[in-house]
Design a binder for these strands. Structure first.
Length: 761
DNA sequence: TATCCGACTTAGCAATTCCTAA
DNA sequence: TTAGGAATTGCTAAGTCGGATA
């Protein structure tokens, strides 16, 4: 997979020589400078506005004075579709109900020159009008919620469903049976159940629970010692759960609806909380059910039993005046806190790694939206500082102090390759790395300046890329790898993420390593969207948007495992394309049968069988088409009969099916005749060459579309678009709006690497 | 200064829902 | 109308990073 061009060593060099910082160069046209100025002016109002932005603003202001006669606010100018408002989370709950605290109203007043959307007109206070509110310690004044929902208690398996040991069905205590069920229930997840570490960890925990609960017995009550994993057969459990899943799927529509309503009613009180008096959606109010820990990659603890979380483990965070949710009968909460500096509503510690699990607000809540907004603001500020930062680290690439040189080299890699910071990890975690934790064996150097990276990053996703780097960076890496360093040693042995981030924040307040990823992704996305021309159609724009998104996913190394069905599905698609081509060829033959003179007119090549098929394939394909028709007819017949039966009418006899199948037989004969005579008779009512040509065009178009789809699918097979497509608060309308906005403003504000809402395409 | 803890974001996979082509 | 696949949502693991503590 090739990456889009990144600022190369030489480019960086040029930029640092130039008066114009790389970041400022993004603002290319006068119009853009002018628009950037309005944004920057706003930023200047904030206390920390970096000097660089002030400069840009001043420059832009000047241009504006000289050139512009139009001082209309930007947002108004950019409105793409009349009447459509740029709404962010217009939740019915938020509407009307919430009143903004006095403080935020005051701020809002200051910004009256800003265009107001519908909600503002109604007096609604939204965080994006007042993004810096709550910048202090406390995140809320009042908080009320209903706590958490616990998973249902374990339901024992029916008596006839038992795991087998060495062929013998065994009876287990419900607690042990539950654990056996965890494994049995996921037999279809082969990459887990076939993983030896997963098996070993599971079996260890399983044996432990067996020991605690009295072990296993056979039908006659004799003890059975469960000693070997290989002799365990969980298939009966899997089959039972699978049948249950199928039965649930097959329920009548009405029944499904009823169950859904029931579930919704039960969950209704938990879906929202009242945060400073405003209704906000809660993200994950369901306590994680017990099961087997699915650690990714080579996680040493994968397969261990994740135990059931008890109310006694859960801490509730809630307002002092609020009603504390009642724990399940006979239980109590671990603690009830009133921590206004936290954004979580409940938390517990899990038993595998001792990690904390939090119940927090949903991605489309005000608090998360605001946090996202601030993240992009930070990336935008970096844009204004990036030239200076690059200049500084380029100088440090030659620093005398090894620590400084390592830090500068790491910064180069983070900036140009979008690597993660790379914190230290423990031995009880999967062996993955980021920039600062890169190991000796993760990079290979090839003269004169090529670096080959090969390591497992977050989620054990492989990063395997080759880059031409700055000569000094290459030299440095060579030094950092010098003996006595050997496999297993860290490249940046004088650098930690804490040191790196401390340095970064000294260059720009709030700057950390991860901001570079946001900046990098947003910058690329914005550049690609800018290329879209106003004249392009909506589908073309969507395609370009998707392509931009794909590029961002590639930069961020967002990958997915290629699905098992991918190859088969590609083959199927290819076969379909070939089938359409064959259909096209037959139509051409029909034209010949109507007017043999056109062969001369169009040339013999036009009527030739496409290159990628021969007579053998044709015969096979014809047989498949006949078979397909047969299946279709039979299925339809069976269905019709079922319908008749349901209506209490007499079913049709087999003779009817035989008659219906005549059509397939006729098709078979037609093909035979065609193969023999090498001629295709024209089909349809009153066929003419013109009509056939129109048909052909349609078929060819379909084949072309499908070929594009296939190509797209193949090139996307291991790119995970989900994460970068997470365009917070974007609906398609907003995307279109943004496309217009982005074309006229400097940098897009909307690409989020955080949680997804929807891009309903 | 190193390590640990706690709170938060980022991310891939699985389940569910929606959409489209036949 | 429906099957199959794409898109979305749900779930939770795996990161980042600041602050407390040793």
């Amino acid at each position: 997979m090739k990456r889009p061009p990144r600022p190369s060593a030489t480019q960086l060099g040029e930029d640092s020589d130039s008066d114009t910082p790389l970041g400022a160069k993004l603002v290319q046209t006068k119009k853009e400078i002018e628009q950037a100025a309005v944004k920057t002016q706003k930023a200047i109002k904030k206390k920390d506005a970096p000097k660089q932005e002030k400069k840009t603003a001043a420059k832009a202001k000047q241009v504006k004075k000289e050139e512009s006669s139009d001082d209309e606010p930007l947002a108004k100018k950019a409105a793409p579709t009349k009447g459509k408002t740029f709404k962010v989370d217009p939740s019915p709950v938020a509407k009307g109900k919430a009143k903004a605290p006095a403080k935020s109203k005051a701020v809002k007043k200051e910004e009256t020159e800003e265009p107001e959307d519908d909600e503002d007109a109604e007096g609604e206070a939204n965080w994006w009008d007042n993004p810096m509110k709550n910048d202090g310690e406390n995140k809320w004044e009042t908080l009320q919620h209903s706590g958490v929902i616990f998973p249902p208690p374990y339901e024992s398996l029916p008596k006839n469903v038992k795991m087998k040991y060495d062929g013998t069905p065994v009876t287990l205590h419900p607690d042990a049976e539950e654990v056996a069920g965890f494994f049995g229930g996921m037999l279809n997840s082969t990459h887990n159940v076939e993983n030896p570490v997963f098996q070993k960890n599971f079996f260890g925990d399983f044996k432990e629970i067996l020991k605690k609960t009295g072990g296993a017995t056979d039908r006659d009550g004799n003890k059975i010692q469960i000693k070997e994993f290989a002799k365990c057969d969980f298939k009966p459990i899997f089959e039972y759960y699978d049948a249950q899943r199928e039965a649930k799927k097959a329920l009548p529509k009405e029944e499904k609806k009823r169950l859904k309503t029931e579930k919704d009613e039960l969950e209704a009180p938990f879906i929202f909380c009242l945060w400073d008096g405003k209704k906000q959606k809660v993200g994950n109010f369901r306590v994680e059910p017990p099961g087997l820990f699915r650690g990714r990659g080579e996680h040493p603890k994968t397969g261990k039993v994740k135990t059931r979380v008890q109310p006694e483990q859960i801490t509730i965070n809630i307002g002092k005046e609020a009603t504390v949710p009642v724990p399940p009968e006979g239980h109590k909460w671990k603690e009830v806190k009133h921590d206004r500096t936290g954004t979580w509503l409940a938390m517990w510690q899990e038993n595998i790694n001792g990690n904390f699990k939090y119940v927090m607000l949903a991605a489309n809540s005000d608090i998360k939206g605001k946090s996202d907004f601030e993240k992009f603001e930070k990336a935008r500020r970096l844009k204004g500082r990036i030239a200076d930062i690059r200049e500084a680290y380029r100088a440090d690439l030659k620093a005398e102090m090894m620590a400084d040189r390592q830090r500068a080299t790491a910064m180069y890699l983070i900036d140009t390759l979008a690597l993660r910071a790379g914190n230290e990890k423990g031995d009880d975690e999967a062996d993955t790395v980021g920039c600062c934790s890169l190991k000796f064996e993760n990079i290979t150097l090839r003269e004169p300046a090529t670096v080959i990276f090969d390591f497992l990053g977050k989620d054990s996703i492989r990063f395997h890329e080759e880059y031409q780097v700055d000569k000094q960076v290459f030299k440095n890496l060579k030094i950092f790898k010098k003996p006595p360093k050997k496999e297993g040693d860290e490249i940046f042995d004088r650098l930690t993420t804490t040191q790196l981030n401390k340095h970064l924040s000294s260059q720009m307040p709030g700057l950390t390593a991860k901001v570079f990823r946001t900046y990098n992704a947003s910058w690329t996305f914005a550049q690609l969207l800018k290329k879209i021309k106003k004249s392009e159609s909506v589908p073309e724009m969507i395609k370009a948007y998707n392509e931009a998104n794909r590029q961002v996913a590639i930069i961020c190394n967002h990958k997915r495992t290629v699905g098992a069905s991918h190859a088969a599905s590609m083959e199927k698609m290819d076969e379909k394309i070939k089938g359409l081509k064959y259909q096209g060829w037959r139509i051409k033959q029909m034209m010949l049968s109507i007017d043999s003179k056109i062969k001369k007119k169009k040339g013999a090549d036009y009527f030739a069988l496409p290159e990628d098929m021969d007579q053998e394939w044709v015969v096979q394909h014809q047989a498949a088409l006949v078979e397909e028709q047969r299946t279709k007819i039979t299925k339809k017949f069976e269905k019709d009969n079922e319908k008749l039966k349901a209506e209490g009418q007499k079913e049709m006899k087999q003779k009817e099916l035989t008659e219906r199948l005549e059509a397939a037989k006729e098709l078979e004969q037609k093909f035979k005749k065609e193969n023999k005579s090498k001629k295709v008779e024209a089909e349809g009512k009153g066929p003419t060459v013109e009509k056939l040509e129109a048909n052909l065009e349609k078929i060819e178009q379909r084949a072309a579309n499908m070929a594009v789809q296939a190509e797209d699918k193949e090139s996307n097979k291991e790119v995970a678009l989900g994460t970068s497509k997470i365009v917070s608060f974007l609906s398609l309308d907003v995307v279109m709006h943004l496309l217009t906005l982005i074309r006229t403003t400097s940098i897009h504000d909307s690409l989020s690497s955080s949680r997804r809402n929807s891009t309903s395409q």
